[in-house]
Nucleic acid binder design. Sequence first.
DNA 1: TAGTCGTGGTT
DNA 2: TAACCAAGACT
Length: 363
Amino acid sequence: MTSPAARRLSISTAEPGHAARLLVWYDQNARVLPWRARPGTAADPYRVWLSEIMLQQTTVKTVGPYFAKFLARWPDVAALAAAPREEVLQMWAGLGYYSRARNLHACALAVVRDHGGAFPDDEAGLRQLPGIGPYTAAAIAAIAFGRHCMPVDGNIERVVTRLFAVEQPLPQAKPQVQEQALMLAGEGRAGDSAQAMMDLGATLCTPKKPSCVLCPLQPDCAACRRGDPETFPRKAPKKTGELRRGAAFIVRRGDQLLLRSRADKGLLGGMTEVPGSEWLPGQSDAAARRQAPVLPGLSRWRRRPGVVSHVFTHFPLELVVYVADAPAGTKPPDGMRWVAIDALEGEALPNVMRKVVRHGLGD
DNA sequence: TAGTCGTGGTT
DNA sequence: TAACCAAGACT
């Protein structure tokens, strides 16, 4: 709280509120991250945007190498817009949530085509672009353009619901949290305030065992006073999905594999895969195997021992893997293609398919 | 509004 | 280990 000396001074110097104390803490404790501008220098909207898209539901550690890779290959939004979409998907492979990659490219094209290559400099304008929702629009507006707004992500939801001991569960409490979060934006330093809140949530106000003794907001934190900060935010428990089963089919033609591209939308949209059965709860191995591709002259299917297990956000998956050989010269079925095993790095293979190939090739 | 959409890490 | 979480968007 305010010291007696400071209180006397507060006649002319307003008592530091939440926002001010947050910024004092940030100036001494800000994380150094590749996409952040050096203190005192302006942020590059392209880098801010690229990082914000990559960071959606993705950890800082995971994003690091992808951010560097993208920036080296496409140093500005015009370069990214000029790239083939397939190349963007391939570079994104492994990062997950692939609609982000499709929207990233669509957004770059829109910025070049509709905005002369410059990002809109306010929340409303940004919000119109593909892949930019309420959070990302506010984050870019604050960090890149200094607009007075506060993006609300998982970190900030946690900090705010603890600070005010919000009893209403999420997501119902979102409007209230948004309003309270904005009160923490410092005058003239909205971008730093936003990043300070994220750093606070990531390093001190953590989901479990928060370090309240080090927190600059601790004197005012209702949840900390109650003694149960970990119980915030309130949230309804979510149900786990049912296990789905299926089969994946690896067809070898010499040193090549048979691949195809998934439908543009939906799960793993636009990504590369080996032919496979549907993924259904309770599907028998026999039913899955009947969905094998048909090629002339194909050898017998050999089932690889074991299964490939993978967990998506809303369901776990188990795939049985079969392998067969096709004679030299065999033409690929409609919509499929032969790809050299050595060239798989150049494909937009999601991790589940990397697991399948590794398993099928006996690694 | 609630379900869909990846993957890796932590507890 | 099963559950939860990570700078959410879209339908």
